[in-house]
Design a protein around this nucleic acid. Structure first.
Lengths: 195, 195
DNA sequence: GGTTTACACTAGCGCTTGCTTGGTTGACCT
DNA sequence: AGGTCAACCAAGCAAGCGCTAGTGTAAACC
């Protein structure tokens, strides 16, 4: 048995699984459906993953890991004004929500189906990501760019951003940067820049 | 068979089902679990509901109906300034999210499990509710209270509010009105009222 | 006093589920 | 040439699933 490797094959299978989990939901996705989508038989699945739950964990880990990478990179690239960093963070969030959409939708909707062990491990990853957000928001508060309670502001912002997966249409006229810009315009009293 | 009545018994069963659906998720909740929670045997369940999906539909309908009622009531009671109406709407939203928490969590997480017919019927209900929001936000835009794109602003606000079900602790120090107030302070450039 | 109605029960059918078992294949290494 | 190993398959098990059929019973109604 294979189980904890990082073979390219496993990565590809994880990607396919994410798509099915979004389409059908984790519970309704059977191992036979997963196997068929991957072009193998259901028994062969358990060569790559210990059990069905491990596939879910792999999907979510992949997505969260990417989000962390992208966000860290964005924060290094951007300037060091509070506004630039806030914008970079929002952009990065929307960008990863878009390109890794399947994985993130799964993370948002199927989190509760994780086993206790996997949930434990992954919530550390998620906490690391959210810490980036709170840091950037702290900076914006200190700079007087926004006002309010740091806890509440960060929750509200993350809520607004994560909710986008329910309505955002990548084919539509709005780009992720537009959304980020508009959101920041909405919460910063100084800037009245419309569109 | 009973099926489409509105007996008080059925209402109570719906409430219990909502709780289980939140705890376990719709798919993992078996008819036997539902029956046990209700103090009957699984077969008897189908005297009250045509099938399992109808239970889900009943849960969501109940929650959405309540949200509509509360929101309409709140809009009648409050004053007619744009700010008062915005605040009333946000309060009503959080209040129903709190008191009918189970039903709304189910609506948010298990919507996709609805059959096509039920989804059709319920999306009309939901649209009616969202129309209230867009109307109030339009008024706030016209009054110059907030700025930005009406579509985006309403999505962002609903996202921030709905996200509260993931972190809000009713036992904590913050009351729903506090949240509503802080959210509105965050998006209205004029008011710098802290807490 | 007989019929209806609402609600519950027992028993189980037919099917699907996640997962296991035991074995085959072909590429690669020595 | 012999051995290793990841990758896959066919077959199937035990458990659990949603749901149905047929029956019992106590209260409500005519």
């Amino acid at each position: 048995m294979n189980v904890v490797n990082e073979s390219p094959r496993r990565k590809e299978l994880t990607r396919l699984a994410a798509q099915l989990f979004v389409q059908e939901g984790f519970d309704r996705t059977t191992v036979r459906m997963l196997a068929q989508e991957m072009g193998i038989k259901s028994g062969s699945l358990f060569h790559h993953f210990r059990d069905k739950q491990e596939i879910l964990a792999a999907v979510i880990e992949e997505g969260t890991q990417n989000a962390l990478t992208i966000a860290r990179h964005a924060l290094e690239e951007c300037g060091d004004t509070a506004e630039a960093r806030l914008h970079a963070m929002a952009c990065a969030h929307l960008e990863t929500l878009l390109t890794d959409r399947n994985a993130h939708v799964v993370a948002l909707y199927e989190w509760r189906r994780l086993g206790a062990a996997a949930r434990d491990h992954l919530s550390h990853l998620r906490d690391a990501y959210e810490a980036l957000w709170e840091q950037v928001i702290d900076e914006a508060l200190d700079a007087g760019l926004i006002h309010g309670d740091r806890f509440l502001v960060s929750r509200f912002v993350m809520g607004a951003l994560n909710w986008t997966v329910r309505w955002y249409d990548p084919e539509g006229p709005r780009k992720p940067e537009d959304l980020a810009h508009e959101l920041i315009a909405m919460i910063t009293p100084s800037s009245h820049a419309g569109r």
